[in-house]
Design a protein around this nucleic acid. Structure first.
Length: 679
DNA sequence: AAAAAAC
């Protein structure tokens, strides 16, 4: 494990910020349809709204870190080190807590479960241990005491909706492109006018001919392939200086791929650049965050977050980002990408604001975009902590929650916006968000943000930002798919990746179970009936929901995470897994990318993914920061061939094993992790 | 084809 030099600082991304004093503001969670709204929990165990008295006190912890952070943000409250649980020290103790709360491992049958969950929001019934769950939706009740201090906020913002001008996509700016012939040949066209071109060696637009042959963009081919034929070779001179390169296994793989699939075009260029820089990353691995150019406060905060010294991807990207370059970076899952862009972003904004007053109502100077709300929340947890260490403010702008709080924060003035495309565009169109002063834009999961449904919104947003703004694109699977954005918005981007990050050096153990469809349910039950945290992926929302119910039916506490749930439930269910209140989360691909939960040691793909990139991202929910983890993919016999091909594209070696209910193999997989006693 | 992202 070359790049995991400091697994110690490992979970840098999962720390929780210190929360300021909590306020009782909870309108975001209260739902109109909530039946018990306003009344205290029932004293009767049989009542749907039952809430044991003993829950009262501890209940406060129910608020998720992000909710609290968001609330504080809105109220402009400074954090006060009142952490109930330290940033990352909560991990160890949490396990213990878990076993208590969950009652330890129990066989399916053993689980006493009250009435079947009624589906609405509350499926409290079966979990004796967690009655308050239902209340989650209505936070108010519980913490009500606080209400006193703080007037409850009601959806005052709601009304605005009306005044809100409808968003019409028609007026989109991109029209300009009309003149560009490019779409087809798109990439180079732009560069033609751009001066950058000249100095920019890696762009091999010249050879682009490849494009032609490759009319359809296939996502299948991974990006790296490209490197093989990349013309860049020219700039390669650097390689000499950096020895690492050679060792980088990834390189050779790419070369091989390239040879096999030389049809790729411009993207290749980008990638090539990556390799070259990768060497650098390694060479600077010994540098400290301070050496890389970050200020004292930020360095101290990073340390508090568990990031004592920079990971390779961080060492590689921080300097160029501080220099103001546009950067493309690829670092495999769990390699510390959030800090890689978050820390230098804060440092840069800080420098640009040096000597200036923090004015009320100032427009945001940086924008960080993510594909899902959960990821946006998670990124904010890291970036907000860093930003606040130097007096800068962040706010989350994403959908599914009332706008009021977000708009309120914007009115006061924030420095960094972290959010999802839809709401950002929405508020911008309403005139409540001014992006004209944005100096740095980050696209996390950039390749995903360049896919069909995301590309146009991203283009519209980027066009609202001043031309000179710095652009940073990050992803574990960065490939040519980002070309559409790179070509239009980036100038001479530097590309980075960490050498040696091949799947061979991964800490993830991959296996494929071949089964009969009729045995699937039973086999899944066996796999998730374990002590460690398990993340199960399904292809559809309906199946995710169904599986969660199925697991609960056999006594295995489980929650679901997918787009059919309201944001409160999504946030809460993910938090439950993070807290360890449940050890099984069944999710759609909404949780495939970026989400970091410590200690997920088993990822089960109830439905095999269709794309190798999806496979890599889902797998990446485990084995983070050098930890070990297992990924099990269930396939029927008919799908073996497809699965084999996909694994090849992902460059993953995984044994295929036939399995039937009751096989020891299942126990081995499910029990092997963690403190298993059966072993 | 599904999922995600605004209301």
């Amino acid at each position: 494990m070359p790049k995991n030099k400091k697994p110690a600082g490992g979970r840098a991304q999962n720390f929780e910020p210190r929360y300021g004093k909590k306020t009782s503001y909870q309108d975001a969670k209260r739902r109109p349809g909530q039946s018990s709204a306003g009344t205290p929990g029932s004293k009767s165990p049989s009542h749907r709204g039952y809430r044991p008295e003993s829950d009262e006190a501890p209940r406060k912890n129910r608020w998720s870190a992000q909710e609290r952070a968001g609330r504080d943000e809105a109220r402009g409250i400074r954090s006060q080190a009142r952490d109930v649980r330290g940033p990352r020290d909560d991990r160890a103790p949490r396990d213990d807590r878990r076993s208590d709360a969950a009652g330890g491992r129990r066989p399916y049958e053993a689980q006493p479960r009250g009435d079947r969950r009624t589906f609405g929001d509350a499926r409290p019934s079966y979990r004796d241990d967690r009655p308050r769950r239902d209340f989650s939706d209505r936070p108010n009740r519980d913490d009500r005491p606080r209400r006193d201090d703080r007037p409850a906020r009601s959806f005052d913002d709601r009304p605005r909706r009306d005044d809100r001008p409808a968003r019409s996509f028609d007026d989109r700016p991109r029209r300009d492109f009309g003149d560009r012939p490019n779409r087809d040949d798109r990439p180079r066209r732009d560069f033609g006018d751009r001066p950058a071109r000249d100095d920019r060696p890696r762009r091999d637009f010249g050879d682009r001919p490849a494009r032609d042959d490759r009319p359809a963009r296939s996502f299948d081919d991974r990006p790296r392939r490209d490197f093989g034929h990349r013309p860049n070779r020219d700039d390669r001179p650097r390689r000499d200086d950096r020895p690492r390169r050679n060792d980088g296994p990834s390189r050779s793989n790419w070369a091989a791929e390239t040879a096999a699939k030389a049809h790729q075009d411009h993207v290749d260029t980008v990638h090539e650049r990556l390799q070259a820089e990768a060497v650098d990353a390694a060479s600077v691995a010994q540098a400290s965050f301070g050496d890389l150019g970050l200020g004292e406060n930020i360095v101290r905060q990073l340390e508090a977050l568990g990031a004592a010294s920079p990971f390779p991807i961080q060492a590689a990207t921080i300097p160029p980002i501080l220099e103001g370059k546009d950067v493309l970076a690829r670092g495999r899952t769990g390699s510390g990408k959030t800090i890689a862009f978050g820390a230098p972003l804060v440092e840069s904004i800080l420098r640009s604001q040096a000597g200036k007053r923090r004015e009320f109502g100032r427009s945001p100077k940086a924008l960080i975009l993510a594909p899902t709300r959960e990821l946006a929340l998670q990124i904010d947890r890291t970036v907000q902590a860093i930003a606040r260490s130097v007096g800068l403010f962040t706010t989350q702008i994403y959908g599914g929650v009332p706008q009021a709080r977000q708009v309120g924060a914007l009115k006061k003035g924030v420095d960094i916006i972290i959010g999802t495309p839809g709401r950002i565009e929405d508020l911008q169109n309403q005139g409540k968000l001014d992006l004209s002063e944005v100096q740095i834009v980050v696209l996390d999961e950039a390749d995903h943000m360049s896919e069909l449904g995301f590309l146009e919104p991203m283009q519209r947003i980027l066009r609202l930002v001043q031309d000179g703004a710095q652009k940073l694109l990050f992803s574990a699977t960065l490939d040519r798919e980002v070309a559409a954005l790179v070509d239009e918005f980036l100038v001479e981007p530097a590309v980075y990746e960490v050498a040696g990050e091949s799947q061979d050096t991964s800490t993830i153990d991959h296996r494929v179970l071949v089964l009969d469809h009729r045995d699937k349910a039973e086999i899944l039950n066996s796999l998730v009936d374990r002590d460690g945290k398990t993340l199960v992926f399904s292809r559809t929302r309906a199946y995710a929901e169904m599986l969660a119910e199925q697991f609960e039916d056999v006594g295995i506490p489980a929650v679901a995470l997918h787009g059919d749930l309201n944001q409160a439930k999504r946030t809460r269910n993910l938090q439950r897994l993070t807290d360890g209140k449940v050890r099984v989360l069944v999710a759609t691909d909404v949780a495939a990318r970026g989400i970091h939960v410590d200690d997920i040691d088993l990822v089960v793909q109830a439905d095999a993914p269709d794309e190798y990139k999806t496979y890599l991202h889902r797998s990446g929910r485990t084995g983070r920061a050098g930890r070990t983890g297992t990924v099990v993919t269930l396939v029927t016999r008919q799908r073996r061939r497809r699965m084999t091909e996909m694994l090849e594209r992902a460059e993953i070696d995984a044994p295929f094993e036939d399995v039937r209910p009751g096989d020891d193999l299942l126990e081995e997989i499910s029990g092997r992790q963690l403190s298993n006693v059966d072993a």
